[in-house]
Amino acid sequence: MFNWKKKALFLALAGLALISAAGCGGSAGKKEAGKGGEIVLYTSQPEADAQKLIAAFNQDHPDIKVKVFRSGTEEVISKVLAEQTAGTVQADVLLVADNVTFEQLKQKDMLEKYASPELKGIPEAYIDKDHTYTGTKVITTGIIVNTSKAKGDPKAFADLAKPEFAASAIMPSPLYSGAAAYNLGVITRTQGMGWPYYEALKKNGMTVTKGNGAVQKAVVAGEKAYGMIADYMANNSRKKGAPVKFIYPAEGSPAVTEPIGLLKTSKNKEAAKAFIDFVLSKKGQETAAKMGYTPVKEGVQPPEGLKAITDFKALTVSVADLFQNRAADKERFTTLFQK
């Protein structure tokens, strides 16, 4: 027998979904020909940094309202893909951890090609050849050390697997953090490290937590003496007076570029392009540097305490290789650390 109560509930929920979609994009759709209205940004940036970026953008574009959904990269992308399946993508612009994540969306034909006029000064290595996304900064992963709790200084990633550092280190999970997922793919394909390195970390009592923010909190509080972390987070904590320092590992550093891209389904592409242009502009890059990030654009100085992109060794692996193996890498990591 047909259940009319279930049908009524379904129609009500569908109506709410349409209202929600209209609320996020309706007014922006009317402004598509210009650069006003509203856009929705999905990002893995810390909430405070996203708001600082938007505030700087609004100094130049006060007529464009930017709404934000913020979470870890993996959750942001899961949300976008679920919305794509339902035909209700709310995001106009994506700003998340790494290019491998964007390759996933590119393969699904979800990204609009857009060659920003602000690309000058950005190395080609950080620009997608098809212009579906562009790096906005360079974030390396290294080692944060709590100087009041540490019994010694690790010089390399390999040191964290040594007995003297047993049960005293923490790292973000690749199941939550896009940067950590990228690091996993790079490190397991780096000569002298590979999967044996992660196996050694497991044996040495490495703690796995949700994301870089949790690593930062644990090491700053002294709950752990060491952590694998994004450079800017350790450096910002140091500048705020925390007893920590950041070490660029001897093997080299995995480096994500936190790309930005435009969704094909955007209801306000002109305003979205204006936002992308600002992020890649000199002023946008200076804003990023003030927030503690290493800028991707030549001629913009990195923040005190961090190296410029030409001054550290970057560990690199084929993006295609990382993209094709990301799911398998995360599955193997889960199996390893659930033992």
Score class of each variant (00 low, 15 high):
residue 214 A to T: 11
residue 208 V to K: 08
residue 221 A to K: 13
residue 202 K to S: 12
residue 210 K to Q: 09
residue 201 L to T: 10
residue 209 T to N: 03
residue 200 A to W: 12
residue 216 Q to M: 15
residue 209 T to S: 08
residue 214 A to Y: 06
residue 227 G to T: 00
residue 212 N to E: 10
residue 230 A to G: 08
residue 208 V to E: 00
residue 221 A to Q: 14
residue 201 L to F: 11
residue 230 A to S: 12
residue 202 K to F: 14
residue 214 A to D: 13
residue 229 I to T: 02
residue 201 L to R: 12
residue 229 I to S: 04
residue 217 K to H: 10
residue 214 A to H: 07
residue 206 M to P: 00
residue 208 V to H: 04
residue 215 V to M: 05
residue 208 V to Y: 04
residue 202 K to T: 11
residue 224 K to D: 04
residue 204 N to A: 12
residue 223 E to D: 11
residue 205 G to K: 05
residue 212 N to I: 10
residue 230 A to E: 13
residue 229 I to K: 01
residue 204 N to T: 08
residue 228 M to I: 14
residue 202 K to G: 10
residue 220 V to N: 04
residue 224 K to F: 03
residue 223 E to T: 09
residue 205 G to Y: 06
residue 210 K to D: 05
residue 218 A to N: 07
residue 219 V to M: 09
residue 216 Q to Y: 13
residue 227 G to E: 00
residue 205 G to P: 08
residue 228 M to L: 14
residue 209 T to Q: 02
residue 224 K to V: 02
residue 205 G to M: 09
residue 221 A to G: 11
residue 218 A to G: 09
residue 214 A to V: 12
residue 224 K to Y: 07
residue 216 Q to L: 15
residue 216 Q to P: 12
residue 219 V to P: 07
residue 203 K to F: 13
residue 228 M to W: 09
residue 216 Q to H: 15
residue 228 M to K: 07
residue 229 I to H: 01
residue 224 K to L: 01
residue 211 G to F: 03
residue 202 K to V: 07
residue 217 K to T: 10
residue 203 K to G: 10
residue 215 V to G: 04
residue 211 G to L: 05
residue 210 K to I: 10
residue 207 T to M: 13
residue 214 A to K: 00
residue 213 G to V: 06
residue 208 V to M: 03
residue 216 Q to T: 14
residue 218 A to P: 02
residue 220 V to E: 05
residue 209 T to I: 12
residue 227 G to S: 01
residue 225 A to Y: 00
residue 230 A to T: 07
residue 202 K to W: 14
residue 215 V to H: 02
residue 215 V to L: 08
residue 227 G to Y: 00
residue 210 K to M: 14
residue 223 E to F: 07
residue 228 M to R: 07
residue 217 K to D: 08
residue 229 I to Q: 03
residue 206 M to E: 00
residue 204 N to I: 09
residue 200 A to D: 15
residue 200 A to F: 15
residue 200 A to R: 14
residue 216 Q to K: 15
